[in-house]
Nucleic acid binder design. Structure first.
Lengths: 233, 233
DNA sequence: ATTACTAGAAGGCGAGTAT
DNA sequence: TATACTCGCCTTCTAGTAA
């Protein structure tokens, strides 16, 4: 998206108000108010837009009307198209690059517990291999993992078993090395630090990919619809 | 769409490059090139974005990596959502306000010619009443009508009949007074000026709406998918 | 009531340069 | 090599005011 002059926001505002559908009666004062701009500033924006043939104006007794030209509509639609491609196409996937290491085997223990295992089957659609793949992710990706934690994901509920309580966790569908289906675990209180990504899969990934400690592994995590939580700020 | 500071375009550019999915390795020089900005300018934009918590940066040996935060993604998605609502929701409809007048009856003659009549049936799905409704549109709406002429619409092909040739024309689905289905005609060489909107309908609109000359009529013209011809400029 | 000119302030920008 | 500071230019903003 090349940098656009400030008055493009004004064009978008006019577009939102339907000025591409019919001449919009609007004083420069009102427009300024809408944009957080002075009346004079709004006037200048309109003058610029008209000079660029993005709008046409018609003066009348009390004010003027604004109509967006075909070129103006195309400008707005072109911005929209690029945003659509970016938001709909790319978002919803987080990419991690991790280094394999061997954990303490606790992951495998948890996964094999019926209380969690049955939930994995239900949520991910596969019987998990009784062991997790532990990856150390780059420091820059920790922020990304934190963002995962903010998303809904697939919820694993906690339970009590044998007098011990097991906490709730979160899970996301993931793909390992573009080939293997997996689940990325987000566990609130884990023995691992925040720089670790833990994966469950229907197969022994370490064996299936012939991995050894220190190998690099690429993981794509699906976060669901990108437009969820589109409230903005 | 409230006015946004210029660095929001930079945020969008970063988003397009996938910086919301994984840390993006990018020098300020490259970013400047992408945005038509100097290296220093790009650096400033990044500093601003970081100050607003829209991105996080991590410095490394050769350059730095940029990752868009949840707040940053929300900002982009919020802009996208508003644009989507405006473009998908509103566009594709032009609104005209016209004043009824009585033509010379030529419209009715043309409409009843088999060469045109059969095309109306095929394109609009109704047998046209042998007469057109002529509206004088406001001067400000002439530009809008010109824009109609630039769109594809439903094409009526010309023909020769009885030694006379009848030219091609264009037609758009329309709704009169929110109640009656109609077709809005765009005729290249017409006896009417450009300030006239001519409508065909399956019924006698003048009678159905109890209209007399001078009455005001509101017409919504469907122009088809708004994202057609989204090339921009 | 409008729109829009002018002048001066504020902020964005690039060049040079420090780190 | 990078990033980012200062400085001067230029664009954009608001205020005052004309039309």
């Amino acid at each position: 998206m090349p940098r656009a002059p400030p008055y493009v926001w004004t064009l978008i505002e006019l577009y939102e108000r339907g000025a591409a559908r019919r001449p919009l009666e609007l004083s420069t004062e009102e427009l300024g108010l809408m944009l957080g701009l002075s009346q004079q500033g709004a006037s200048k924006h309109l003058a610029e837009l008209e000079k660029e043939d993005l709008i046409v104006r018609r003066r009348n007794a009390r004010g003027a009307s604004v109509l967006i030209t075909k070129e103006g509509s195309d400008t707005v639609i072109s911005i929209y198209s690029r945003l659509r491609a970016a938001v709909e196409g790319k978002a919803g996937v987080f990419e991690f690059h991790g280094t394999l290491f061997t954990g303490l085997g606790e992951g495998g223990y948890y996964v094999s517990l019926a209380g969690y295992r049955k939930q994995f089957v239900k949520l991910l659609g596969f019987e998990p291999f009784p062991g997790t793949l532990n990856l150390t992710i780059g420091a820059g990706e920790i922020e990304l993992k934190k963002q995962l934690g903010l998303l809904r994901g697939l919820g694993l509920t906690g339970f009590v078993h044998g007098g011990r309580s097991y906490g709730p966790a979160k899970c996301f569908r993931a793909t390992v090395e573009s080939r293997y289906e997996a689940g990325a675990l987000i566990i609130e209180r884990t023995h691992h630090g925040e720089g670790v990504l833990e994966l469950v899969a229907p197969v022994n990934l370490r064996k299936a990919l012939s991995l050894k400690d220190g190998d690099h592994v690429r993981v794509l995590v699906q976060t669901g619809d990108a437009t969820n939580g589109s409230g903005g700020h």
